[in-house]
Computed example of a mutant assay.
Amino acid sequence: MKSPHDTLMYQEAQSTADVIAHQLDANAGLLAELGERLRAHPPRCIVTCARGSSDHAAAYAKYVFETRLGVVTASASPAVSSIYDAPLQLEGALFLAISQSGRSPDLLLSAQAASKAGAQVVALVNDADSPLAHQADAVLPLHAGPERSVAATKSYLAALSAVLQLTACWSGDQALHAALDRLPDDLRASWNADWSALGEGLLGVRNLFVVGRGYGFGAALEAALKFKETCGLHAEAFSAAEVKHGPMALVGEGFPVLVFAQEDGSLESTLAVASEFRARGARVWVAAPGARGPDALPLPAGVPAITTPLLAVQSFYRAASALSLARGYDPDVPPHLRKVTETL
């Protein structure tokens, strides 16, 4: 039987700080040039295209691009091109395809269609020699290295850091550059945060909600997926702004809820939702900078709000790896799943 430290999921998540430090250095010149081109010829909109964990990175990218660049960002379903062969009108758009493998057939077809429709195609991909990389106008390598666990960890977090570096180089935002400069050290500092209360509390449950807002919503989506994938838990992700529009009716005595929060304008409303759940008798864990208490999942205080989700997800991966084993699963080999999902 594996120990929590023996899983590939644990080891690969633990390496994230080094991965991102290398990525930021390796891509600096490439992104400086791309950022200059985007400033000179700004796209009228950004369209993201991805599946699975990569689509959760796209959800994070939407908030980053719209808050830091002011460019409207929308998600395109790969099925629009791969199944429906619908004509697209993307002249002047930036089409951002995000993939770890760069080999999913539907994503390749979508990127081809976007290029024919007049978009500039940029690929965020871990395999820089993949088919997606070869057909893109520009490639942002994730530099995560081989990922042997089926559950993506370091490559997902590398996609988030690539989004941040692209945004910083495009906008010239020095505060964002500073947040990136400290990110590897922030990740190292947060890795040993004690999230054991989450694993202990979820050992015998079957269903839960994961809640986040703004920059943290993508983290909620990613955690919900990993709960299903590695722990056999039925988890659903909601925005803290949306969970009260119906899903709240399911929350009662003992219902488990994991909440991600960061220190920005969303903090007060997100914590208010957590408090309302507790008042209904729910078991609520809150991952927030400086969190304290028996069901608090600590994150370092004073970290930039925009990078807090990366720290939270890294700590979550460590907790999920241990929980998976405790529930009788192997997080590296989820049932019925493969590393590359070939969707048409």
Rank of each mutant, 00 (worst) to 15 (best):
K2Q: 04
P4I: 03
M9P: 09
A13K: 10
Q14T: 08
V19T: 09
I20F: 08
Q23L: 03
N27L: 00
L34Y: 06
L34H: 07
L38V: 12
P43Q: 00
A50F: 07
A57E: 15
A58I: 02
Y60M: 13
K62T: 14
R68V: 02
S77H: 13
S77C: 14
V80S: 09
P87A: 08
G92Q: 08
A97P: 10
S104R: 11
P105F: 03
L108Y: 10
S110A: 15
N126S: 15
A128G: 01
P131M: 03
L132A: 08
L140Y: 02
P141R: 10
R148S: 15
R148V: 15
T153Y: 10
L160G: 09
S171P: 07
G172S: 05
A175N: 10
A179Q: 05
D185G: 05
W191T: 13
A193C: 09
D194V: 10
L198G: 05
R206E: 14
G214A: 15
G214M: 14
F217P: 10
F217Y: 12
L221I: 04
A223K: 12
A223C: 06
K226H: 06
K228D: 00
H234N: 03
F238T: 01
F238N: 00
F238G: 00
P247M: 06
M248Q: 04
V251L: 07
P256Y: 04
A261R: 00
G265A: 15
S266W: 09
L271Y: 03
R280Q: 06
V284A: 02
V286K: 03
A287E: 00
A287N: 01
A287I: 09
A287D: 07
A291W: 01
R292G: 04
G293E: 13
P294C: 06
L297Q: 07
P298E: 00
P304D: 09
L310A: 09
L310R: 12
S315Q: 13
S315K: 12
S321W: 01
R327E: 07
R327A: 14
Y329G: 08
D332K: 11
K339E: 11
T343K: 13
